[in-house]
């Protein structure tokens, strides 16, 4: 079985359009196990019981931004090993640097093409 058949991914974005775009792209890659949620706290709660291999999260979200989510993931016993890709509208140096320190696996600047997303994911998990 190819990696894409088995990998589980969670998409976190407060904008349903963005969630739709990402999940649509993942679907086009043949990735079937995709969950999505609109905010960090829900993502954390869900990941406790339904672990995934990779979290793809937007940076700019109310209440808990992408890096705050990453921090929570890295300090959570069950989630510290999960892959994390940050989607950001602005690849601000400070944000990326902060992300690197927190153990961000990769980032992707919006807007992106599906192939960019694929390359970004493959850089983290290997060939899909």
């Amino acid at each position: 079985m190819a990696l894409r058949d088995q990998i589980r991914i969670m998409v976190v974005d407060d904008m349903s359009t963005s969630r739709g775009l990402i999940t649509q792209a993942l679907d086009a890659f043949g990735i079937r196990n995709v969950a999505s949620t609109s905010d960090g706290p829900t993502a954390l709660k869900t990941l406790e019981t339904s672990p995934v291999h990779l979290v793809i999260s937007d940076y700019n979200m109310p209440d808990m931004d992408g890096l705050q989510l990453l921090h929570k993931l890295r300090t959570g016993a069950k989630t510290k090993g999960v892959g994390f890709i940050l989607i950001t509208g602005k690849a601000d140096k400070a944000i990326i640097e902060h992300g690197r320190k927190l153990g961000m696996n990769n980032f992707l600047k919006k807007p992106f093409e599906p192939k960019d997303l694929q390359a970004c994911i493959e850089a983290v998990v290997g060939r899909l």
Binding site: V52, H53, A77, T79, G81, G83, D92, G103, M104, A123
Partner: peptide
């Protein structure tokens, strides 16, 4: 702004049964 080239992606070891996510914990 940071370009993608400036950032070295960090690979993650995947266990497809997801055990390693929990094993240490």
């Amino acid at each position: 702004e940071v370009t993608a080239e400036d950032f070295q992606p960090l690979g993650v070891a995947l266990s497809l049964d997801l055990p390693d996510l929990d094993i240490e914990a």
